[in-house]
Structure formats: C-alpha cells, structure tokens
C-alpha cells in the first residue's frame, strides 16, 4: 500500500517536471508575436532620445496596435546576446560592437544614428599631458574591450606608437559610474575613458583633465550611439520597424527644437538637476541626429588591426534602406 503511494508520487512528479519542460519549449519560441517590439537600452545621456520616446509614448502613438517592451541592459555584450537569442528586436550601441557582431555573422543592420558625444580619456595626474606620458604602470578603466572607448584608445595608440594594442593589458573593465568612482578615489585607476555625463563630472574636479578626446583619436566627428535591428524584425515586422525609425526621428527633433522641455523630462529620468541636464544636452560636441558618421573609418581601422576579419564593400551590407550617412 505504502509502496504504491510512493510510486504514484514519483509518477506525478515526473509528469509535472516534463510538463514544465515542454511548457518552457513553447513559451520560449513565440519571439516575434507580430506587433511586439522589444527594445534594449543602456543608461546615459547618449540615449536621451529613447527616454523622450518612452516618456512621451511616441512609439505607442505611431504603432497603435503594437506592444512596446523596454529592457534596460547593463552592457553591449548582453544586448548582442539578447539579439542572437531573439529576445531583443532593437538594440542601441556604438559602431565597434555592432561591427564585431556583424563580422561574426549576426544578421543585423543599422537602422539609425542616435547621438554623438564628446567622449574622452580623463586623468588626474598632472604629468600626463598626452597618451605618450602613460606608463606601463598606469591602469585605464573603460567599459570593456571592443567597446568604442577601447577602439578609440587603440586608434590613438596606433597613431602615436604605431601599435594599436599597446595598452590592451592595462585595461580594467568597469561600468561608467564605477570607473568614475575609481578615478576620483585616485588609487589604482589613473585614467578613465568615458562619456557624458561622467566625463563632465570628472572634469569638474580640480586637476582632472582630458588627455585625449574621441575626435582627436578618430580625426573627425563620428556617431557615438546607433540603433540596430535584427533582420528578422526588419523583415517580419516592417510596420513596427518604420514606426520605430519615425518615432526616433520625432524624439530627436523634439530634443533639438525644445531642449528646455526635453531637459525637464530627462532631469526626472536621470535624477539630476534640470540646469545640469540642459547644459549637458546642449554641450559642445553633443549632437542628436539620425545620421550615421564614421562607419567606414571604424571598419577600416578595426579590419587593419584584426578586431574584425572582414569589412563591407557596400554600405548597404550594414545599413538598412533610407539611413543617411557621411558619404
């Protein structure tokens, strides 16, 4: 009698576990339910148009039947992995991480530019004037290898030392806020390659100065953040795709036309004083635009230094239709 009961419990348990497993299979696969848009964003002023879009519900307005799902992600690698796993339709990142994914066979293209930012390398050591003054003991914090900050540092070291990998083993991977705290502590990190608002905050401190700007490293202006979508999303949900690009356009022109109102919204979002936000979004070098700049320069540099194995012959290989870029 007792044995029988134990047996039946086992049977029930097995059925239970298997039904859970099967359930998992089905629910995992309904990735692109026709009108759903899953958008992954990161944190920072460069993503301001997304905050505007979210706050003013612009995408919801342009895509009435659609369902918009926002996902906050910590870093670019996670967004990329999410897009491979079909959990993210639209992601935002800099051009180098996009090119790395494209090189590794990811089926995705650039849908739009988002912003250009005055990024740069900051230090507190007065003896460090240019990157020539960095010694092998100096540790440089940046978000991660392969990030735009890393590629810009490599560009500058290629120009200065003819060796793009000179600092590769002195890097410390840190998210922007951690990197800023580490730099301000003046302990192990002697330099930090970062972007607004962190770079502005660091430079406010006495003795902190910029060693290298992104523009100097690149030799020209470039787009910092781009919007990328998977081919699956672009092809299967073309309505959603168009609505997204259109909404981004509206959000960007809202910031450019009404910086004051935009600052109101963003101040809430970032928990910063409005005056500060307004100063940041109208700062020199901060541009919100859908144009994609510097794509070829990044690709050439990364190909030349083996960060990627192939480059594109025609920009149509990496840009969706109707994306404007510097010719």
């Amino acid at each position: 009698m007792k044995k029988l009961r134990i047996k039946s419990i086992y049977v029930l348990l097995t059925i239970f576990v298997f039904s859970l497993l099967l359930n998992g299979c089905t629910s995992n696969n309904d990735t692109s339910k026709n009108k759903e848009i899953k958008i992954a964003e990161q944190y920072g002023l460069a993503y301001a148009p997304l905050q505007i879009m979210k706050d003013k519900k612009i995408l919801e307005k342009n895509l009435p039947e659609g369902e918009v799902i926002w996902k906050q992600m910590g870093n670019t690698a996670a967004i990329r992995e999410g897009m491979i796993a079909n959990q993210v339709d639209v992601g935002f990142m800099a051009i180098p991480p996009f090119l790395i994914g494209w090189d590794k066979g990811m089926d995705w293209k650039i849908a739009s530019g988002v912003s250009s930012m005055p990024i740069g390398l900051v230090t507190y050591k007065s003896e460090i004037k240019t990157i020539k003054d960095l010694t092998s003991k100096d540790r440089i914090a940046l978000p991660q290898p392969g990030s735009i900050q890393h590629i810009m540092l490599s560009m500058a070291s290629e120009k200065t030392f003819n060796d793009s990998r000179k600092f590769d083993n002195q890097l410390v991977t840190m998210a922007h806020p951690d990197g800023m705290n580490a730099l301000l502590a003046k302990k192990d990190i002697t330099a930090h390659f970062t972007s607004p608002p962190y770079i502005f905050k660091e430079l406010e401190h006495e003795g902190f100065h910029k060693v290298l700007s992104g523009k100097e490293a690149m030799g020209k202006d470039f787009t910092f953040i781009i919007g990328v979508t998977t081919k699956a999303f672009h092809d299967k949900n073309s309505e959603g795709y168009k609505a997204f690009v259109e909404s981004l356009k509206e959000a960007i022109s809202f910031i450019n036309k009404h910086p004051d109102k935009a600052a109101d919204i963003l101040a809430k979002e970032y928990d910063l004083p409005k005056k500060e936000v307004l100063k940041y979004i109208t700062a020199d070098g901060t541009v919100y635009s859908q144009e994609v700049n510097g794509l070829e320069d990044f690709a050439d540099f990364m190909k030349r230094n083996d960060y990627i194995t192939k480059s594109f012959k025609n920009k149509k290989e990496v840009l969706w239709e109707d994306v404007t870029d510097d010719k």
């Binding site: 670019t76 990329r80 590794k104 290898p145 083993n169 410390v172 991977t173 960060y307």
Partner: peptide
C-alpha cells in the same frame, strides 16, 4: 571577469571575458 587584467596579461577569467566581448564563442 570583473576586474579585467589584474597583472600584465590577466588570467583565464579575463581570457573568457575578452572572448565574450569580441563574440568569439
């Protein structure tokens, strides 16, 4: 994986992390 290269070359965790960010699965 959190610290990055602690010494001159970094260890196996850093190796794996670098492979991840360059998508070298």
């Amino acid at each position: 994986m959190v610290f990055g290269a602690a010494g001159n070359a970094g260890g196996l965790g850093w190796f794996i992390f670098k492979k991840r960010v360059f998508m070298d699965t």
